[in-house]
């Protein structure tokens, strides 16, 4: 027995509201981040990730009161990502109550932000998000700007570099699989998880509970992140954990 593999529901937040359908029975307000976070917490989620998909810079600060409100009532780790451009942004999110901050496009445009943030706040709170796409030659390329811009960077080498720069964790999303419900990109997940010495969260493509188990057993992921299978009420986090446990995976049961 030992460290449990983690299940992390992901919430997309735009201008202060959770978007994408959340169909929990009994929620007064389906878009209220605090209610949703409490629900996942009570189901046994190991962490929560908030992804700020706000388009405009002006509305970006609207996530801060949300994080404050959630952190006051939900006592599990919270990761917040989206739009982090400098170490000051990391500070503001941590001060609002985030435990970890995820850096994506900025890590590519200005890798020193990762090093600076890790130096100032500790590697334990710096997650580097990597969006990767199959390059058709047996490898994977890093993309930025929500998967729209190719960078020419090899995803495995990039993950190793980010570890050196001070990342404490990698949040890995397969662009090819995201939204497909066909399961994680297992070769990609495994290549990166085996290459780095820091934990890797698999993301992108979960359509059923076996996909979560596969991400851990075959992708070697330390944690699995999913959005829609939980939001639409198809499966609860409890069901997901029971399924992983049946496969011999160690999970936290609550």
């Amino acid at each position: 027995m030992g460290l449990a593999k983690r299940i992390i529901p992901c919430l997309d937040v735009r201008a202060g509201r959770v978007v994408k359908g959340v169909s929990f029975v009994g929620l007064r307000d389906a878009g209220d981040p605090v209610e949703i976070a409490r629900r996942y917490d009570s189901e046994g989620a190991d962490e929560l990730t908030f992804l700020d998909i706000t388009a405009s810079v002006e509305e970006r600060d609207l996530i801060l009161p949300i994080i404050e409100a959630v952190a006051a009532q939900v006592f599990i780790p919270l990761t917040v990502g989206g739009g982090v451009k400098e170490a000051g942004d990391v500070r503001r999110l941590l001060n609002a109550g985030a435990d970890k901050v995820s850096i994506n496009t900025t890590a590519v445009l200005n890798p020193r932000v990762v090093a600076e943030a890790a130096e100032r706040f500790g590697s334990q709170c710096i997650v580097v998000a990597i969006d990767a796409k199959d390059n058709g030659q047996g490898g994977w390329e890093v993309y930025t700007h929500g998967g729209r811009k190719a960078t020419g960077l090899d995803a495995v080498a990039w993950a190793e570099h980010m570890q050196k720069m001070g990342a404490g964790e990698i949040l890995l999303t397969s662009i090819d699989r995201d939204g497909t419900r066909n399961g994680f990109n297992l070769p990609l997940t495994r290549a990166i998880s085996d290459a780095v010495g820091i934990p890797v969260i698999a993301s992108g493509g979960v359509g059923n509970l076996q996909h979560l188990a596969d991400g851990i057993l075959h992708g070697h992921a330390d944690a699995v992140l999913a959005a829609s299978i939980f939001h639409f009420g198809e499966y609860s986090v409890q069901q997901a954990k029971a399924h992983l446990r049946q496969q011999g995976i160690e999970v936290r049961l609550t």
Binding site: M1, G2, L3, A4, K5, R6, D46, S123, Q124, G168, E169, S193, D194, G197, I198, P199, V200, I216, L217, H220, A221, D222, A223, I249, R252
Partner: peptide, 16 residues
């Protein structure tokens, strides 16, 4: 012997 075969550092997550 754990899944993945490699000890990740930081030790991150829920342990007993």
């Amino acid at each position: 012997e754990a899944v993945g075969g490699r000890l990740k550092v930081p030790h991150m997550g829920w342990n007993e």
